[in-house]
Simulated scan of single mutants.
Amino acid sequence: MNARAETGASKTDTLKLAAAVAILVAGLWGFYFFANFSLLLRVIVLLAIAAGAVAVALTTGPGRTLWRFASDSRMEVRRVVWPTRQETIQTTLVVMVMVLILGILLWLFDTLLMTILRLLTGHGG
């Protein structure tokens, strides 16, 4: 009996998601079909239809799971200790200096290898 209930719920969820997609597709079709109307009006109607499609999608099991994930993510972002402006600037400067140093070292290594290759192949002046 439990398996039937889960199957019924998943079929319902599938139908709701299909309805949400159908609503969104119909809204997009209407947006382009009524091209002779005001763009502002068409955008407002399209946004309203998209909001309706999202509302239908959020009533499904996966939609509720997605909403819970977004809420939990927002809560976690609030808990993060963000660096101060000074720490961010110092870290950025350290990264830039290290990239510059590494770039110079790679350039020197490449020049050395090219010089050795020219000497070995006899193409050097």
Rank of each mutant, 00 (worst) to 15 (best):
L39Y: 01
T84H: 10
G8F: 12
R4E: 12
D72E: 14
R42S: 02
I49M: 09
T12G: 04
G125L: 11
V77H: 06
G103Q: 03
T91R: 15
L108R: 15
T65L: 09
A9I: 09
A26S: 13
L66K: 13
H123D: 15
M96S: 07
R42C: 01
R64Q: 10
L112K: 02
R74K: 09
T60Y: 09
V43F: 14
V25G: 04
F33L: 09
R118P: 00
E87N: 10
L93N: 14
I101C: 09
A51F: 04
G8T: 08
G63D: 07
T60I: 07
V21Y: 05
L66A: 15
A3I: 08
S10M: 07
L106R: 12
R42L: 07
L47R: 00
L39Q: 09
F69V: 02
T88Q: 09
A48F: 12
I116C: 02
V43C: 08
G8L: 14
M98P: 00
P62K: 02
L113A: 11
I116S: 03
V94N: 11
R68H: 07
L39M: 12
G103L: 13
E76I: 03
R64E: 10
N2I: 10
L24K: 12
E87G: 08
L46Q: 01
F69R: 01
I89Y: 14
T88A: 10
R79Y: 07
N2Q: 07
W82I: 08
T92A: 15
A35T: 08
A3L: 07
A48H: 00
R78Q: 14
